[in-house]
Design a protein around this nucleic acid. Structure first.
Lengths: 326, 326
DNA sequence: TTCTTTCAGGTAATCGATTACCTAATATTT
DNA sequence: AAATATTAGGTAATCGATTACCTGAAAGAA
């Protein structure tokens, strides 16, 4: 079923059918319009969007590249993106990189071949290369602060200040020896959270003990591993975790050693993923506006696509939500 | 940059460039081939996949329609789909319906306009209508067992038997009054789990007490609500939850009432989403091969798309994994 | 030598819409 | 009544690849 067949059935030209479908019907009589509409309905005609895209040079789809949708942080981000995209008439193609630069490259190529109108991406931790500079598909980076000049949009949250706040919260609650478990240092997010942690400790006159810092990855397993490693040889009364998944892992490990939270050890996470309020005890954490970041990424991207004036950098605020783990 | 411009730069026709790019280069001299390849590389030429799709009538993309990627069950399913799709050279467009039939309809239309090669979908609980029958885009349904004749593929897991097993497990552990918290009855999955629950109770000579059955939705909130409602007026020593999210909610509610798991109340969930082993206590649950379901859905769909012989129904096995909540 | 293959690559129709521009009829203005 | 404007719709080029079929030269066979 093509537009020509519809046109024939309605005794008009394909141009007329196209005009009716796209609301450019100023010069179409109501009778003709209804006739065309009726036939489209009857035949269950669905226009070929590919043909349309080829002509109008827009696919109304955007690509989203992220490490892993199974990670609650990214699934929330993806949902934020999808909802806003849908509201603005765009579909989204999703790509998981597992922080693998090869896959990132491959997807970038595929998305461009598919002629997406724009790309939203949380870049791989190590993608400091400048592969993105050479192409012109509009793009906005989310969460990972990587410097590509100012050609790309960026949605970020400040990490230093909330990390400082989180650590200070532990100090205020009386913690004297506070550990930090997070991802490796190639990840800028992790580094910034470390800076906030350091700042709070120094300000409180506490010393930085490298033995209380464990850096691996933003996963539950890392949380288990880190807590295990630190608790084996050292006494701590507080842990600031680089994200909530780590906190969940640490929580489990602490309980297995017969220690209590928050009585023996207080814990603060980061992100406030949806599950965090349901773990035991409910986790004190830094609430990141994850879903909103997804929304904003789409807003910015669509502004770029549709060539509107737009600020290429947007910083959102994160804040502490206190629950029972401290 | 189009194929014609590349052709001009290489002093060949666009047909030759096309042949080189697609490996149909039997009749292309090695010298020409290299020259074309070099220019493509130099110019950073990316072929227009939309134009290609229009001609070859295949977009190499499949759509996936599901209730909500933020739900751990579906994010794992989505990941299973994406990974297998990527391996087979397909991209995926993701659509969240929130179990809203209107959105489902809308996405179905959009995906067909975008000319996806196939659709994988977890149908809305209420979509018993036959809207899918009239179109010919290959489609496989996952998890939700809805009858559309045998035109559509189906990937399912048996729910009755594992639900029976879960309930029997509680009985074997000594539970005398076992509650059931799950989603509403329009959801066949939920119904089947109820049937298994009922079967185990009757077989053990226990009576079905409707006061111990709470049906709402497959969410953490429902778990809280259900446990709250049931525990207020009744004494129970075991709860079979329709899925893990419900179990997590119930767990929280139980603890808030000062009851202990598993000493006072034993709990079994369903799904084994990734977080379940990390809650406190680690959840005994029915492990569904969620990721594999995603894989299999793609396998089946691609077989249908590429017109291979294929069994339109595939049933996977779920099994009990015992952890500390029982 | 002549005929047939093979090789290397070119020509142009095609996929299914969109849209700038055209036309013919009717309506309005002066 | 003549000139102009509006209405209703049609014509055909175009988007950027793919591919069936064609061509002319060189190689091999008879």
């Amino acid at each position: 079923m093509t537009i020509k067949q519809i046109a024939e059935l309605a005794n008009v030209s394909s141009a007329t059918v196209s005009k009716v479908m796209n609301g450019k019907d100023k010069n179409i009589s109501e009778a003709t319009r209804q006739r065309v509409l009726k036939i489209i309905e009857e035949e269950g005609y669905i226009p070929n969007g590919i043909a349309k895209s080829l002509k109008v040079k827009s696919t109304k789809t955007i690509g989203i590249i992220l490490p892993d949708v199974m990670n609650l942080f990214f699934s929330e981000l993806a949902r934020g993106v999808e909802d806003m995209a849908e509201a603005k008439g765009y579909s989204i193609i999703i790509c998981n990189t597992d922080n693998n630069e090869k896959k990132e490259q491959k997807y970038l190529q595929i998305l461009q071949e598919k002629m997406v109108d724009g790309i939203i991406m949380t870049a791989t931790e190590s993608s400091a290369n400048n592969i993105f500079c050479k192409f012109k598909t509009p793009m906005v980076l989310v969460d990972r602060d990587i410097d590509f000049g100012n050609k790309l949009g960026l949605i970020e949250v400040d990490n230093v200040e909330p990390a400082y706040e989180a650590t200070k919260h532990l100090i205020d609650k009386g913690c004297k020896r506070i550990a930090f478990i997070s991802s490796v240092k190639v990840n800028k997010t992790s580094v910034n959270r470390y800076i906030g942690y350091e700042k709070a400790l120094l300000e409180a006159g506490q010393t930085i003990d490298e033995n209380l810092v464990f850096l691996d990855s933003f996963s539950i397993e890392s949380g288990c591993l880190g807590a295990q490693k630190i608790l084996k040889d050292h006494k701590v009364d507080g842990i600031f975790c680089g994200n909530d998944l780590i906190a969940i892992g640490a929580l489990k490990e602490i309980k297995e050693r017969g220690l209590r939270v928050p009585e023996d050890i207080k814990i603060v996470g980061f992100d406030d993923i949806s599950i965090s309020r349901y773990v035991d005890p409910p986790l004190t954490t830094i609430k990141q506006p994850i879903y909103e970041m997804g929304n904003e990424a789409v807003n910015m991207l669509v502004d770029i696509i549709e060539a509107r004036e737009v600020d290429m950098k947007r910083t959102l605020k994160a804040c502490l939500v206190e629950r029972q783990s401290t």
